[in-house]
Every structure is written in C-alpha cells, then in structure tokens.
C-alpha cells in the first residue's frame, strides 16, 4: 500500500475516533434528557429517566464498539498484503 493512501486512512480514522468521546457523553445525556422529558409529561419520575439513561449509555457504548470494530478491520485488510503478516 502506498504512502498517501495510508495517510488518508489514518486521517479518516482520526476523524472518527475524535468524535467518539463526545458521542459517548452526548448519547448518555440525550437518553437521560428524553427520559426526563417523558417523565415530566407523564408524572412517572424516575421510571423513564432511568430506563432511557441506561439505553443512552448502551447506545453510546455501541457507538464506540462499532467504530472501533470497523477501524480494527480496516488496517488489517490494508496490511494483509504485506509479507510476514
């Protein structure tokens, strides 16, 4: 694999992981926000807030997992044509 191709992949990868941290936090907050909103409408505090908080946390982690799994695949396929791997 030539050098610019690799560099492009690295840049792409960098862009994706740079959004991981903020996405993790925002998913959690967003989930809690939705639950809190439903609770305030239905007067069922804290049932939905807790449910959606858990869902939000799970969503954030799934996001992280997916991105990392994807990135794990890319370099390997890139390196597979190198001898000794």
């Amino acid at each position: 694999m030539d050098e610019p191709e690799n560099k492009k992949k690295e840049t792409l990868w960098l862009a994706q992981i740079s959004s991981l941290g903020i996405a993790l936090v925002l998913c959690t907050l967003f989930g809690f926000g939705i639950g809190y909103f439903i609770d305030s409408k239905l007067h069922t505090s804290p049932v939905f807030a807790l449910i959606f908080l858990v869902l939000g946390i799970a969503a954030g982690f799934i996001n992280v997992f997916r991105t990392l799994a994807q990135g794990d695949r890319k370099p390997r396929s890139g390196n597979s044509d190198r001898p000794g791997r």
Partner: peptide
Amino acid sequence: VMEIISQLAR
C-alpha cells in the same frame, strides 16, 4: 431506541 438516540446525538 438506542439507534435513534445515537443518531440524534450526531
């Protein structure tokens, strides 16, 4: 639901 949350967080 989780996918909706993570889509809206984007």
